[in-house]
């Protein structure tokens, strides 16, 4: 069965192929508008996530398919105590493919063992969110023309940010990648990611607290939100929060071809004054997310 639960289940060749298809969809959308005619996508969202759900649903609609599903667990039989396995067995009788968001880690894997149809992990707690990573990779490919030989800066909450861990894992498989990890001590990248991914593969990285100082060497700056609830006391939060807000002043020493990314939603970590900067790519990421999900749905349904 074809599923996508973890980004590392896809080889770099498979990712290249998905990116190629997504780029072709972007260039020739009319060639794809009936590709999934008579197919149904079930979006099973056990916790609300408007953007990801709309992205999946639009992807399926743009392929000519139909969409069923629910957008929070209160409107599903999970609220009556039904197991994930039983829910997807039932949905497997109606739909051709499932996109699942669940607050519990590993729930989409359980679903993939029982559904009888392909399952896409649309986010399981703080664990995996592989289609966000695919959207990030497509954005990097579109903006830079390559996925290798890049210096990638991650800034903000590198401790809890699953999008960061996932993108580091995915990009660690390409040649010539260097990471610059910019965060306060409280939110540094967990040591298991450094040990099991970066050190094990001999990938160069540096850690710093200073965003402005790290800026000149970056090809990509991936911003994340520093959340108040991650700090032990408000004093530390107030002291640190402004250091990790991107504004035009901090971009003074940045490269002209820098690409600024963010998984969204943004609160205040990127000033709106940056939005008109041609280097800002975070809204393109949203658009790319739909195209790469279209490519993924086709792949998992075996549609050329």
């Amino acid at each position: 069965m074809n599923n996508l639960i973890d980004i590392l289940e896809l080889s770099t060749e498979e990712i290249d192929k998905l990116i190629e298809v997504a780029q072709d969809i972007m260039a020739h959308p009319d060639n794809y508008y009936e590709k999934c005619k008579n197919k149904k996508l079930a979006t099973l969202f056990f916790e609300p996530s408007t953007r990801t759900r709309l992205s999946f649903e639009t992807a399926m609609l743009d392929l000519g398919g139909k969409v069923i599903g629910f957008s929070d667990s209160n409107s599903s039989s999970a609220s009556k105590g039904e197991s994930v396995a039983d829910t997807v067995r039932v949905v497997g009788c109606y739909a051709d493919i499932i996109a699942m968001r669940h607050p519990k880690e590993g729930a989409p894997l359980v679903a993939s063992m029982h559904a009888g149809i392909p399952v896409i992990n649309a986010g399981d707690g703080g664990h995996n969110h592989p289609t966000q990573t695919l959207a990030d990779l497509l954005t990097i490919k579109n903006e830079k023309g390559r996925l290798n030989n890049l210096t990638v800066g991650f800034c903000g909450d590198l401790k809890f940010g699953r999008t960061v861990h996932s993108l580091i894992n995915a990009m660690s498989r390409y040649e010539g990648i260097k990471f610059v990890l910019i965060s306060p001590d409280e939110l540094k990248l967990p040591s298991y990611v450094k040990n099991e991914t970066l050190r094990e593969k001999g990938i160069p990285f540096e850690e710093t607290k200073d965003l402005a100082a790290a800026m000149p060497q970056l090809d990509i700056l991936y911003m994340t939100r520093v959340q108040k609830e991650r700090f032990f006391n408000e004093e530390d939060y107030i002291r640190l929060k402004d250091s990790y807000i991107l504004n035009p002043e901090k971009l003074v020493n940045a490269r002209e071809d820098l690409t600024i990314m963010h998984p969204l939603p943004r609160v205040n970590e990127i000033s709106v004054a940056v939005d008109d900067d041609p280097r800002a790519a975070y809204f393109k990421q949203v658009k790319n997310g739909k195209f790469i999900r279209m490519a993924l749905i086709m792949k998992l349904l075996g549609i050329e």
């Binding site: 197991s83 994930v84 519990k104 590993g106 399981d124 707690g125 703080g126």
Partner: peptide
């Protein structure tokens, strides 16, 4: 023992 793991709520897994 991860309280966020699906096994924490689905006892039969």
């Amino acid at each position: 023992r991860n309280p966020r793991c699906i096994t924490s709520t689905e006892q039969e897994l």
